[in-house]
């Protein structure tokens, strides 16, 4: 980019006009976006042709992965971002390091760090804020409302006493389970079910005995790691009600835990999965998963 605008004065002039115009209108034209949910929102609003770069967490829609990648949002690079000649860096509070963000602000790049909050209203607010920034308020309002309706519709179709445990597999060294403050916890709460670890904060390793005591009715396992069938034999999980009733499910956490425009979809699908045992379960029927 930097190389070409020296050559053609015409293009440069046009770019300058565009810049002035966008400055007056307040809408960004060349956006570097560093957060998967925000990328999804831009695509859902139809603003994808303004994106000039994404970060490593932006993996949906798949087209987003074809854009120049600026790396992980907590380890941003000033020159890398500036080399894309953006007029806006759209990201969340998680972005860093702060020294790099300062460099970008000193380079007169507009940096918008939005507050992401793992709730339906928080996601709706996030969508509306992005809408304001890119000048697509109406689309954003419609999208947010649709999401809200989907979440409302899916809610309370589940017995609130259903205990759902979300586990991340930590290699061969047991599991990490999600307490409150995590996205998994927020998603479980949104379906109206309960997380038996609500009293705990964040992700923590699970002790084998604790699993029995928690007595989860359904266990959700993050999708990316391995085969679900083996989990029924796992000493920590095999005696839980979930394992006895064939209710260990592998879920696509990159989709379900994104808290972007597809949140309504995710809540609906999870609710469905909890009620019927149908969904992304690695193709195993409930019977074949019973342990003797």
């Amino acid at each position: 980019m930097l190389r070409t605008d020296r050559r053609c004065t015409g293009q440069r002039l046009m770019a300058l006009c565009l810049l002035l115009w966008s400055g007056l209108a307040g809408a960004a034209e060349r956006i570097v976006v560093a957060d998967g949910a925000l990328t999804e929102i831009l695509y859902a609003l139809g603003a994808e042709d303004r994106i000039v770069g994404v970060d490593t967490t932006s993996i949906y829609p798949p087209e987003a992965e074809d854009l120049p990648n600026i790396g992980y949002l907590r380890a941003l690079s000033a020159e890398g971002i500036l080399s894309l000649s953006p007029d806006l860096l759209l990201t969340t509070q998680d972005a860093g390091p702060s020294a790099v963000l300062n460099q970008l602000r000193q380079a007169n790049l507009r940096v918008e760090m939005l507050e992401a909050d793992y709730s339906a209203s928080g996601t709706q607010a996030l969508i509306e804020r992005v809408g304001q920034i890119v000048g697509l308020e109406d689309e954003a309002e419609a999208l947010g409302q649709e999401l809200r309706d989907q979440v409302e519709a899916a809610r309370d179709q589940i017995d609130p006493d259903t205990r759902i445990l979300f586990v991340l597999r930590g290699g061969g060294r047991g599991f990490m389970v999600s307490g409150s403050g995590t996205r998994a916890h927020a998603l479980i709460e949104l379906t109206g079910a309960s997380n038996p670890l609500a009293a705990m904060d964040g992700y923590k390793p699970l002790a084998n005995e604790a699993a029995l005591e928690l007595a989860p009715d359904v266990i959700l396992v993050s999708h990316m790691e391995g085969d679900v069938a083996a989990l029924y034999e796992h000493p920590a999980l095999q005696h839980t009600p979930a394992a006895r009733h064939g209710r260990i499910h592998s879920i696509d956490d990159t989709h379900w835990l994104q808290f972007g425009p597809r949140l309504g979809e995710a809540v609906t699908e999870l609710s469905e999965l909890i009620r019927n045992g149908q969904g992304d379960t690695a193709g195993l029927s409930a019977d074949s998963r019973m342990t003797p």
Binding site: R74, S77, S98, A99, G181, G202
Partner: peptide
């Protein structure tokens, strides 16, 4: 052990070093 997801990632990247923030 006490750190949340984000803090874990921040400290991982910090401990790998970078000249990126130098001014």
């Amino acid at each position: 052990y006490l750190a949340d997801d984000g803090q874990l990632r921040t400290l991982t990247f910090w401990s790998m070093g970078s000249l990126g923030g130098l001014s």
